[in-house]
Design a protein around this nucleic acid. Sequence first.
DNA 1: ACAACTATACCGTCTAGCCGGTACAGTCGA
DNA 2: TCGACTGTACCGGCTAGACGGTATAGTTGT
Lengths: 190, 190
Amino acid sequence: MAPMSKNAAAPSVPTRDRLLDAFEELLVEGGERSATLDAVAAAAAVSKGGLLYHFASKDALVGGLLARLDALALEDAENIRTAPAGAVDYLIRTSVHTGSPLDRAYIAGSRLAQGRDPRAVQVLTEIRRRWLSVIEDAVHDADVAQAIMLISDGLYVNSSLAENELAPQNHTDAAMTRLIALIGRLLPHE
Amino acid sequence: MAPMSKNAAAPSVPTRDRLLDAFEELLVEGGERSATLDAVAAAAAVSKGGLLYHFASKDALVGGLLARLDALALEDAENIRTAPAGAVDYLIRTSVHTGSPLDRAYIAGSRLAQGRDPRAVQVLTEIRRRWLSVIEDAVHDADVAQAIMLISDGLYVNSSLAENELAPQNHTDAAMTRLIALIGRLLPHE
DNA sequence: ACAACTATACCGTCTAGCCGGTACAGTCGA
DNA sequence: TCGACTGTACCGGCTAGACGGTATAGTTGT
């Protein structure tokens, strides 16, 4: 077929990124196992040869995903630090599945880490270390910061496990506001 | 009817359970991908034919693991409810990788859920629903119970991701005691 | 001309699942 | 008490298909 404007939509997004998007999507939706090269190529509407043109191996594909995740997370750490409503507020609100690029990349990375890919484990560990550090700066108490991180992690688990079942309205804006108020009690007074 | 004394060692643990143990272990250590039938059989020191005698398919193996997890979790809910030091104390302390049978089964189940096995998702969702219910009974506040569950989930993520890296002494007894004290602040007063 | 692909064919390995066979303990009728 | 038979617990060889990766020839927009 015509490799140009697929059919209607012009490839405003470079193929390389579309491949990474597709890989991510498959990891999130179907786990490690379903993210095969064939599946990734098909999902990105690219031939397998085309995939391997951009990423010479599956390892390279994983590397590309992890690099993008790391870059996204680095930006995010800055967003948390400078969030107008406060670091804790921002962290908690963005810990629920918002569908943001970082969100998807983070969950995809988690899948790889659970498959025990050592690079994925390292990248995730580093990202979490950065988040913890930002929260520590914001609350001035290592134990409280730790507890807040745990809640943030818990939210990720919840939203990626239940998707939308368990406790229908746990992730609404109102619920998040109540949760953040609750976290406020952890702070002695500042 | 004695299937005993294979050669020398009497199989004090039935082969069926050894297979489930091996499957669990592989899921925990290497993720979904590494838990192949061949690997499970080898880890249980059984031939592949032997494995398939006990579990006719991989699906059946997953079913067996999930059934065992569910049974273990049902017992555990009772342990939480009747824990001398209180439900919250028990839940939090057992949320870190203790190596208990439930612990391992739960993490293994999580791996399957991340592979998007719908049965695994359902079993885990149900287990978490039960835990939440027990905590709600203990703290008499839905929001606080929710927050405690999130912390518990976070601890699982932490211990299963970092294993023993990130923040060396986050899961010591002392750290847990401090965390539980912190959670106490969430309760208005009771 | 060149980069960015498509399409197809192929290879070695891994994976799930199947099947025939073996060993052996216990049951039962004559 | 013997021989025929049954059920349980396995072994190990096999196959079809999936998977990662290679190779190569052709197409298209700039």
